[in-house]
Design a binder for these strands. Structure first.
Lengths: 196, 196
DNA sequence: CCCTACTGCGGCAAAATTACGCAGATGAAC
DNA sequence: GTTCATCTGCGTAATTTTGCCGCAGTAGGG
């Protein structure tokens, strides 16, 4: 409703990630695929850009330094009701995926991810008729690897504890130091033995 | 009041899973926690029960034989608009979790889970007083959570592999030797009192 | 200011996990 | 019978992870 600098009718894509390198790479990749990319590395900038530029799409990192990308999702939607938000994270878990979708994200992908997958997720179900009737993802044929299961469980309890690491470690019956170390590592891929 | 057996104002919990053993176990555990449980092992029965009994809660397996539990979620909501659906699966993945939430599920848990976690997920954000603040003053919930979870999962997959240790280790993404050691070592410590 | 609690991190010994090899058993294929 | 693939149990040595200190900084309540 207010002014925006959209000269053309194309609305930009807002890229929010605290990793400058990642932003640069993905920016280039998305720009070359026809998007007008604007980017931010923290919540405040992201909010401002969203308000001013009314982006159509948003690629949002879950972990923005100290801040939490999840909080931004509802705000973005109130600023730009029709924005499609794609969550992206190197520390993916089912618990945070559930949270993200509940808060209105359109999809959730785990890093590392290639730009084509990002574009696909962004555009999925966009251009008109939804086809979510026979588009169901199938369950993996293999159960979760042990590491993965552990990761998911940790994430869930951690969420339950509002991110309190000490409390989570206590409930999980593990050493706080061990939890810290585990959290600092990246999650395991979904498929055991599947290289990235 | 005419067509269903709800004599009181409590509405039942619909449990849908193709694994009869699992249904029996969880049924007992949930019943003992005060739920009136009705169960189905396929989509058709689930639909019928939902229509007739108007359950307040639903615990739904992702993989129902050939059928896909995801498909049922929107249907359940159209049959019973205020139903809270909890997805449960032994083959969890982020993709299906995202899809489940998009379709209106309230939460998504990976098996193995203990009944308390199910109840917690079911009730989370229900019953008025909630504002995503957690209220978990007491923590007798999951002391051995990690170890036990691992053990349950190993047993589940081992059974699935008909006791084939090598195959199980492969699916679990762990070293065969490690699995051997875990299996040989573990004196299964049951926790008394929990009925799941 | 004092006290409690959480967090991140370095270091070190103990424990667990891994990668390997080896030998015996089994069952299917030839 | 022989060959081949696979599973199994187990030992050993290299690696990784964990448990358990401690310390310093931060935040909130009394």
């Amino acid at each position: 409703m207010n002014e925006n600098s959209n000269s053309s009718n194309t609305r930009p894509l807002l890229l929010v990630d605290d990793d400058a390198t990642f932003v640069r790479v993905l920016d280039r990749a998305l720009t070359s695929r026809g998007f007008e990319v604007i980017s931010a590395t923290n919540l405040a900038d992201a909010r401002m850009l969203a308000r001013r530029q009314q982006p159509r799409y948003c690629v949002l990192d879950l972990k923005l330094g100290e801040e939490n990308g999840l909080r931004l999702i509802p705000e973005l939607h109130s600023l730009v009701p029709d924005m499609r938000v794609l969550l992206l994270t190197g520390y993916a878990s089912i618990a945070t995926a559930v949270e993200a979708i509940k808060r209105g994200a359109h999809d959730y992908l785990a890093k590392p991810v290639d730009a084509d997958a990002v574009v696909r997720a962004l555009l999925d179900g966009d251009g008109g008729s939804e086809s979510d009737d026979d588009d169901l993802p199938d369950a993996p044929e293999a159960p979760l690897a042990l590491r993965r299961l552990e990761w998911e469980h940790i994430q869930r309890v951690l969420t339950e504890c509002n991110g309190n690491i000490s409390e989570t470690a206590r409930r999980l019956g593990m050493h706080r130091r061990t939890l810290q170390r585990k959290l600092s590592k990246h999650p395991v891929r979904e498929r055991p033995g599947d290289g990235d």
